[in-house]
């Protein structure tokens, strides 16, 4: 039986304090978020939190261990800097989804806007639809899977994050190149798609990564800067 919180009656502050307090309920259902910001951010325990509606900025920010599901759309920075656990968005996500995330899985059923996975540091992100421009910008580690199309400058200034795209890529960013899809990549992609509850065929995707030519500041790279 889920603990029910209606955000029309309960302030977000009270909700988050309850989610942070050790020894509370394990299963939560949040009603009427109505675009509120910072809903269910900073959770440390393996709670299950279902949010029935649209959320504003930074929902499930810095999540640790919890499974947070947004049954609606999410505003800027959903699951930003998440460390572990799972965050699911059943609708679309605004810009900077999963920004700087260190671990766990962010699964977005719909589209994600610009800068999806920007500066990602180990998080896995699976987007059912398209992603906007500058996605995975300066991505350091982790995997970004795009089942639809990617916008301009995908993977610009990429470090070691890996990107898989099923549809078209409008353009690749500086130092991002298409790479060979080997068996180990097909296997990890299959696992990611399964974890995100998706049934696309890994064989339909292409892989992108860093050419590693900008890892050192050299005068020869002048035109790339």
């Amino acid at each position: 039986m889920a603990t029910l919180i209606d955000l029309v009656e309960t302030p977000v502050r009270e909700l988050n304090q309850a989610l942070h307090t050790p020894g509370g309920a394990d299963v939560w259902r949040i009603l009427n978020p109505r675009g509120a910001h910072a809903v269910a951010c900073g959770i440390r325990e393996g709670l299950a939190v279902d949010i029935e509606g649209h959320v504003g900025y930074y929902c499930a920010g810095m999540n640790q261990r919890a499974t947070v599901t947004v049954h609606g759309n999410a505003g800027t920075g959903v699951a930003e800097n998440m460390m572990s656990g799972t965050v699911r968005v059943r609708g679309n996500a605004s810009q900077s989804a999963g920004a700087t995330g260190h671990g766990g899985l962010l699964a977005i059923d719909g589209d994600a806007s610009a800068r999806c996975g920007i500066s990602m540091k180990g998080v896995d992100i699976v987007v059912g639809g398209d992603v906007g421009h500058m996605s995975a910008f300066m991505g350091q580690a982790g995997r970004l899977v795009v089942c639809g199309d990617a916008g301009d400058a995908l993977g610009d200034s990429l470090y070691e994050a890996r990107i898989y795209v099923r549809g078209s890529v409008k353009s690749l960013g500086a130092d991002c190149v298409e790479k060979e899809m080997r068996d180990e990549h097909l296997a990890e992609l299959a696992e990611l798609l399964k974890a995100a509850e998706r049934d696309e065929d890994p064989a339909d995707f292409r892989r992108y990564g860093s050419a590693r030519t900008l890892y050192h500041f050299k005068v020869d790279n002048l035109t790339a800067y």
């Binding site: 910001h37 910072a38 900073g42 900025y57 900077s96 700087t100 800068r115 910008f137 300066m138």
Partner: peptide, 27 residues
Amino acid sequence: RSACRHPDWTGPDDLAIKILELREITD
């Protein structure tokens, strides 16, 4: 290279929401 702009907010109105998030995370 360390970025010169924050990755998940732009401008003072966003910063207000970012600060709110940091306050919420740290109660």
